[in-house]
Amino acid sequence: MRIRNADFDDAAAVAAIYGPIVEHTTISFELEVPSVDEMRSRIAKTLPALPWLVAEDEEGRVCGYVYAGKHRERAAYQWAVDTSAYVREDMRGQGIGRRLYEALLRRLAELGYYQAFAGIALPNAGSVGLHEAVGFKPLGVYRNVGFKKGAWHDVGWWQRELRPLDAPPSEPSKHLDG
C-alpha cells in the first residue's frame, strides 16, 4: 500500500468509496450522494491549505482517504482542524485507516497545528476504534443532532493533541504539497 497526496483525478475513486456510505448508512449525515465533480471541488478547496491523502492498493487503486478541514472560522481556532477518514468496504479491517491517519496527523503537526477533532455518528464501533487507536480521546456527545433514515442520531466528538502547546504559537503553514 502507498499513501500519497490526493489529486483531482482521485475524485471518482473518492466518490465511489463515499457514495455507498452516504446512501446506505448513517455514518455520514449527508442526505444526497455527492457527484464526482463535487468531490473534485472538495479536494480542490482543501489542498491549498490542508492535507488530503489517499491510500492505493497493490494495483494502484484508491482504497481509502483521509483529510483535514478548518475546525471553526474565528481566528483563534486557526491551530485546530477537523478530520475525516474513509476506507473502501472491501479493504476495511486491514490497517489502512490507521496508516492514513498516522500520515495525516504527522503532516498536520509538521504544518503547525495543535489539535485535531473528529465527529463520529454513533453507533460506529469501527470508527471509534480507529480514532482511539491513533490517540484520539473522547470529549462528549451531541445528542439527537442529526436526522437520517427515519431516526435521530448522536455524534460523538474526539480530540487529539498533535504537538506540545506553545504560547504564543506561530501561524500554521499551508499544505504546499497539494
Rank of each mutant, 00 (worst) to 15 (best):
D166L: 13
A109W: 14
A118F: 10
T83I: 13
A80L: 01
T83A: 01
K70P: 02
M39S: 04
Y142R: 14
L111A: 04
A133K: 15
C63I: 12
R106I: 00
A55H: 00
P138M: 01
E161Y: 12
D37G: 13
G93S: 04
W157Q: 07
R98S: 02
L139G: 08
A121E: 05
Q159N: 06
K148H: 11
A125W: 06
A80I: 00
M39E: 15
A49D: 13
R99G: 01
A121R: 06
L162T: 07
C63F: 03
A44P: 00
A68I: 03
E132K: 07
T46P: 03
R107S: 10
V66D: 00
A44S: 08
H71G: 03
R98K: 14
G156E: 12
V128Q: 13
G60Q: 01
Q78R: 15
A75W: 08
L50C: 06
A75Y: 11
L108N: 02
A133W: 12
D166P: 05
V36N: 04
Q115F: 10
Y65G: 00
V155L: 13
K45V: 09
A75M: 07
A151R: 15
P51W: 04
R143E: 14
E73N: 08
E161H: 14
F117C: 13
D37I: 03
E59I: 09
K45Q: 14
Y142D: 10
K149P: 08
A125D: 15
Y65R: 00
L104C: 06
F117G: 09
I96S: 07
A167K: 10
E132T: 14
G60S: 09
G156P: 04
Y65S: 00
S35H: 08
Y77M: 03
G95V: 12
D154R: 10
W157R: 04
G150R: 06
G69V: 06
L53G: 04
G150I: 01
R74D: 06
A49T: 14
R106Y: 09
Q78H: 11
P34F: 04
K137M: 13
G126P: 10
Y86R: 02
E56M: 05
V128M: 03
A80S: 15
L47P: 02
L130I: 07
A55E: 02
L100V: 02
